[in-house]
């Protein structure tokens, strides 16, 4: 158990637009190891949903199998959750989303769950541009099965077991960008100030949004030789810039103009204000982002922040021309052609 939550709530806890305190967005007590990065990511999810004033019951929490995939139990207790099978969260989420496009889908996976057993499903999920937030809690290791290397472990990086990884790592962000995802970010569980707005932006984005979140495993992969340890990540991460999200219904606060490089509107009217260094990467150009990621890797740097954004992608429903009304809301009369039509079908078969 990572920590014991205090049940004391200050009566004056801030409330969001719905009148809910942040506590409403919490979940059951975590059973992960104390200090596990995944718990911090859960907290950022809680914060983001609170700040965006989302109705908890209009969110569906989806996951695969792993320590990371357990976390949906630890946030948003009033949301339905689905802990599916190892590596297959994408397909279950696709079906759920096809059945009700009105909900917000937050999918949680691990690097084993995504980059090994679930790689096929992950890539096809990106291709279909399902409208969802996909957070990979990436610790470079299989936590739940006790410390095997995962496919995101860097060459030469060694977990507690001490044997350096020999195989080429997968970069989920590069993959997602090349497969057409319109919102790709990398962050760090320990950087809440960066992660929370990234989650908010991902929720607001129409289509598939990936957050590859480095989330150290304190028990199996937080040693000196690991490139997914707290220390390594702190020393090597390089933010590409910061941004804040102004939800559609909020007034846009005037910023210092020279700090804002770009203002990008999202489909629902929300606005992303990007603050970046001059010459930093152009997040709306695939080529530039892919080469920056490559360059950073060669320099042993880890680029974080919003890496790629394309706001006019069409989500799966838009691509397959499905009804605006959720599929799960249709009644028999709306679905069943009835006996008269059946009789004409019979007649055509005689």
């Amino acid at each position: 158990m990572s920590y014991l939550k205090s049940t004391f709530r200050h009566p004056e806890s801030p409330k969001n637009k719905l009148g809910y305190t942040e506590a409403v967005y919490e979940g059951a007590l975590s059973t992960l190891c104390a200090g596990c990065g995944h718990d911090s990511v859960s907290n950022s999810i809680i914060k983001a949903c609170f700040e965006l004033s989302l109705e908890p019951h209009k969110i569906a929490k989806m996951s695969g199998i792993g320590c990371s995939s357990k976390t949906p139990a630890y946030f948003l207790r009033s949301s339905h959750g689905f802990n599916s099978v190892h590596g297959r969260m994408p397909s279950v989420t696709t079906g759920a989303n096809m059945a009700n496009r009105d909900l917000t889908f937050i999918g949680i996976s691990g690097d084993g769950d995504t980059a090994s057993i679930g790689m096929g499903q992950f890539m096809h999920l990106v291709r279909r541009n399902l409208n969802m937030v996909y957070i990979c809690m990436n610790n470079g290791v299989y936590g739940l099965t006790k410390g095997q290397d995962s496919a995101t472990a860097d060459i030469g990086s060694a977990s507690k077991k001490g044997v350096p990884n020999m195989f080429e790592p997968m970069d989920l962000c590069e993959l997602a960008i090349s497969l057409g995802s319109g919102y790709v970010a990398r962050s760090f569980s320990g950087d809440k100030s960066q992660l929370v707005p990234l989650i908010e932006g991902a929720i607001k984005h129409n289509g598939f949004a990936l957050i590859d979140c480095i989330s150290p495993c304190v028990t199996f992969n937080n040693n000196n030789a690991s490139t997914k340890s707290y220390e390594w990540v702190r020393d090597h991460k390089e933010a590409t810039g910061t941004f804040d999200l102004v939800p559609e219904e909020q007034e846009i606060v005037v910023q210092q103009p020279n700090q804002i490089l770009e203002t990008i509107s999202l489909h629902d009217g929300s606005v992303l204000n990007l603050h970046r260094q001059p010459h930093s990467l152009d997040i709306q150009s695939r080529e530039s982002v892919l080469s920056s990621l490559e360059e950073a890797r060669q320099n042993e740097q880890m680029l974080t922040g919003l890496l790629y954004l394309n706001t006019d992608s069409r989500n799966t429903h838009e691509l397959i021309n499905s009804s605006e009304k959720p599929m799960n809301s249709f009644t028999k009369d709306e679905l069943c052609p009835g006996s008269t039509i059946l009789e004409s079908i019979n007649e055509s078969l005689r």
């Binding site: 989806m62 079906g95 989303n97 499903q121 096809h124 599929m327 799960n328």
Partner: peptide, 19 residues
Amino acid sequence: SEDELSAIGMAIGANWMGA
């Protein structure tokens, strides 16, 4: 879908959601 695992996964997800 990309394979049968995904096909049944989709069907299960949708039924879970009430379609």
